[in-house]
Amino acid sequence: MKRRSICLAACLLLAACAGGARNNTPAEVYDFGLPAARLAEGSGWAKLALEIRAAYWFDSPSIEYRLLYDDPLKLRSYAASRWAGAPGLLLAQHLRQQLGLLDSSGRTAVSCLLRLELQEFSQVFETPLLSRGVLQGTARVIDARHQIVAERAFSIEQPAAGADASGGVRALVVASNALGQQLAGWLQELEKLGRLKQCPATIAG
């Protein structure tokens, strides 16, 4: 019994040391880089506030990936790499910079909301060496009565230069840039059709 207790204690000590060694290795932390350039100056899109809703499994700093050749239903995450924040928050900041939109939680009261439902934000591997960044979801413009003014789905894929977290991150950032361009074109079209006239902005007192 005494010998068994000593062995158990030794195993627990080794496990603790191994965990400490892992914790001493800093994770690679990624974000979207420097602030994004504004896509269009002087537009009326400042009447809109931006909100991103992400599935709860994307509401963490983990960099997610899927292995289609192994189990496409299994969502995995890199152990030694992570985002600087939840992907939805990073994407929201990036798109606000690109489009000049307001923060839905800010002090500026707006009558319309651009809401993105983020359904996929991951690196997808076709083979161990071939992968792509996948960004999918739905965009809606919602007025003060909570009615949908306009709606469109988006699905963007960008080949990854490397079969690792760094390659996946860079592919997803490029895909996010493409999403900003798609949204800019869509909002321009809605503006030309006069469908954003019901979205005036007022400053909260």
Rank of each mutant, 00 (worst) to 15 (best):
R3E: 08
S5C: 06
C7V: 15
A9I: 14
A9F: 13
C11N: 07
L12W: 11
L14D: 03
A15R: 04
A15D: 01
A16W: 07
C17M: 10
C17A: 15
A21N: 10
R22Q: 10
N23T: 11
P26Y: 05
P26W: 12
D31Q: 13
F32R: 02
G33M: 12
L34E: 10
A36Q: 12
A37D: 14
R38W: 11
W45H: 07
L48G: 03
A49V: 09
I52K: 01
I52D: 08
I52S: 05
R53Y: 06
Y56G: 04
Y56M: 08
D59R: 15
P61S: 13
E64K: 13
E64R: 14
R66G: 02
L67A: 06
L68Y: 14
D70A: 13
D71H: 13
S77I: 00
A79F: 14
W83Q: 03
G85H: 09
G85K: 09
L89N: 05
L89W: 07
R96D: 01
G100I: 00
L101A: 03
S104M: 05
G106H: 09
A109V: 14
S111V: 06
C112E: 00
L113Q: 02
F125D: 00
E126F: 07
G133N: 08
L135N: 00
L135S: 02
T138W: 01
R140Y: 02
I142V: 15
V149Q: 03
R152Q: 14
E157Q: 12
S166T: 07
A171H: 06
S176M: 04
S176Q: 06
S176P: 13
A178M: 07
G180P: 00
G180H: 03
Q182I: 09
L183T: 03
A184D: 15
L187S: 01
L187G: 00
L187P: 01
G194C: 05
R195T: 10
K197D: 14
A201V: 15
I203N: 10
